[in-house]
């Protein structure tokens, strides 16, 4: 599935700080939350890049930056060579057409007062030149059919649908403008277990059918593994490891990735007594005041002096085939066979 060639999405040194202020009348900035702090990657046509990491690692802020819902503090996001981060007005509208989003919670991301037809057709209202007015109804029915919903339900309201069906409505809306890139922010985590596989299958089918590229943000590592060609691991606003799916899962080199993978409960009780598990101590530090040098060093069992002084860049290191941001990167297999 992994398509080669020109990247359609290029992210370079992306940074987003949220100011922390004090005072009501006179606002003084007293610091900043470093939500995303220097993230770079490429996404190619038809490819899926999984982004994993725990709450507070900046993955949702990253999604908003890609969608130009937040303005970056610095850095660039290019779609087909066009800068998104600084685009305004008509230009912004044009680049946005190419990148759409599927949100986590299908219960809050659909307007309860709009019919399904209006929700899925709303992108056509905003981008009027995409479909002529007379054609919109037909396009909406087509979209509903594509995502496996009954086109005759076009006049129903969101509350008449189950969670899985609502997520399909959200996906249909995302597809309306025929984007090349879809950012999925935890698209299945709010769904019942028996429904998750249906939605994952739908996303995979749509990718084949329309040649979509996905940025797939999730915390369920087995779902990410299933759907992704490449995976990026984030910790406290940094990308700490980036590589092909097999490289990350079978040969992780960053201690955080190793801890994360070993912590995932495996749905198979065989041999559970012998399973090696890296238990991290404490909680991630605050993104308002990250540790010096390597941000993971306060919880890392390999931390040495250099880790406090020098920040390890994300690059390919000797003996490993993919990029890792650890001074002491080395392969360790932590997932049980």
């Amino acid at each position: 599935m992994a398509a080669m060639g020109e990247p359609i999405l290029e992210v370079r040194d992306l940074v987003k700080y949220f100011p922390l202020t004090r005072g009501i009348v006179v606002r003084k900035q007293i610091g900043a939350i470093r939500a995303v702090d220097g993230v770079s990657f490429d996404l190619r046509r038809g490819e899926t890049l999984g982004i994993v990491g725990e709450s507070g690692c900046g993955k949702s802020t990253l999604a908003k930056l890609l969608m130009a819902l937040e303005r970056p503090t610095s850095g660039s996001v290019r779609i087909n060579g066009r800068e998104v981060a600084r685009a305004r007005g008509g230009e912004l509208k044009r680049v946005r057409r190419n990148i759409q989003m599927v949100m986590q919670d299908p219960y809050t991301s659909l307007n309860p007062r709009m019919t399904v037809g209006d929700i899925v057709g709303e992108p056509f209202e905003i981008h009027r030149d995409v479909a002529p007015k007379g054609d919109r109804r037909r396009r909406v029915r087509e979209l509903l059919e594509v995502v496996g919903l009954d086109p005759d339900h076009v006049n129903r309201y969101p509350h008449q649908f189950s969670g899985g069906q609502r997520q399909r409505i959200g996906i249909a809306r995302g597809l309306a403008l025929r984007p090349e890139i879809i950012v999925c922010d935890e698209p299945v985590s709010a769904l019942d277990v028996s429904i998750q596989a249906q939605v994952v299958n739908l996303l995979a089918r749509l990718q084949d059918e329309f040649g979509l590229a996905y940025v797939f943000i999730a915390h369920d590592l087995s779902v990410v593994r299933h759907i992704s060609d490449r995976v990026g691991v984030m910790y406290l606003g940094k990308m700490v490891e980036l590589g092909k799916e097999t490289e990350i899962y079978d040969r992780p080199t960053h201690p955080y990735t190793q801890a994360l993978l070993s912590a995932v409960p495996v749905p198979n009780p065989e041999g559970r007594e012998r399973r090696e598990r890296i238990i991290l101590h404490g909680d991630p530090p605050s993104p308002a005041d990250p540790p010096s040098g390597c941000r993971f060093r306060t919880r890392c069992w390999k931390a040495a002096e250099i880790c406090a002084v020098e920040e390890p860049p994300l690059r390919i290191r000797p003996g490993t085939g993919h990029a890792s941001a650890c001074h002491f990167a080395e392969t360790r297999d932590v997932t049980p066979a």
């Binding site: 028996s194 596989a197 249906q198 994952v200 299958n201 995979a204 087995s222 299933h226 899962y249």
Partner: peptide, 16 residues
């Protein structure tokens, strides 16, 4: 329906 490594790239089994 749990994704397994050897099913990569295939459709997941889904309860309908």
């Amino acid at each position: 329906s749990v994704p397994r490594v050897d099913q990569k790239g295939q459709e997941l089994f889904a309860i309908k």
